[in-house]
């Protein structure tokens, strides 16, 4: 499996950048000729991952969010969203739907959405050091006229 394209970006963990982050990944993914539904799945999952960084990882301090995207020759998009924030104490519990530490207006669905909308989700976290969420979306090739 060979990587055929890659981009990375980093930005301040501010909520105003949530829109920018998902739009950037969606624009990069567009070269795989995804359907509208696939693009929306990717945008939604990226939005969840970036929101987690802002709401949870950097709840106590401000920091940066790092996104790296690759495309391989199997038509797969891999998105990694990394922060250097507080980390997750118990990743298994964080992955349970409806589990949330902040309550209020947060539904506790972030990881459930990432799991459901993408084909693979991996979460690596070290308490006090940060979290990396890696997601994979397989884009089905479409063979139409001229395709």
């Amino acid at each position: 499996m060979n990587i055929v394209n890659r981009f990375s970006l980093n930005f301040s963990a501010r909520s105003a950048n949530e829109n920018f982050a998902r739009a950037a990944v969606a624009a990069f993914a567009a070269q795989l000729d995804p359907t509208l539904e696939e693009i929306n799945d990717i945008k939604t999952a990226v939005s969840e991952a970036v929101t987690n960084c802002i709401v949870h990882a950097y709840a106590e301090k401000t920091g940066k969010v790092y996104i790296t995207c690759t495309i391989n020759d199997k038509n797969e998009l891999r998105v990694s969203v990394r922060d250097t924030g507080c980390g997750i104490e118990n990743v298994d519990r964080a992955l349970e739907p409806l589990f949330t530490t902040v309550g209020g207006e947060r539904a506790g669905l972030g990881f459930a959405v990432m799991q459901s909308f993408m084909d693979d989700l991996r979460v690596r976290s070290v308490s006090g050091r940060g979290t990396t969420v890696t997601m994979v979306k397989k884009i089905r090739p479409r063979y139409g006229i001229g395709g």
């Binding site: 998902r22 945008k43 939604t44 939005s47 969840e48 929101t51 207006e105 947060r106 539904a107 669905l109």
Partner: peptide
């Protein structure tokens, strides 16, 4: 566009 923030809403 809506993410899970819409569900929280």
């Amino acid at each position: 566009f809506m993410d899970s923030s819409g569900i929280g809403f």
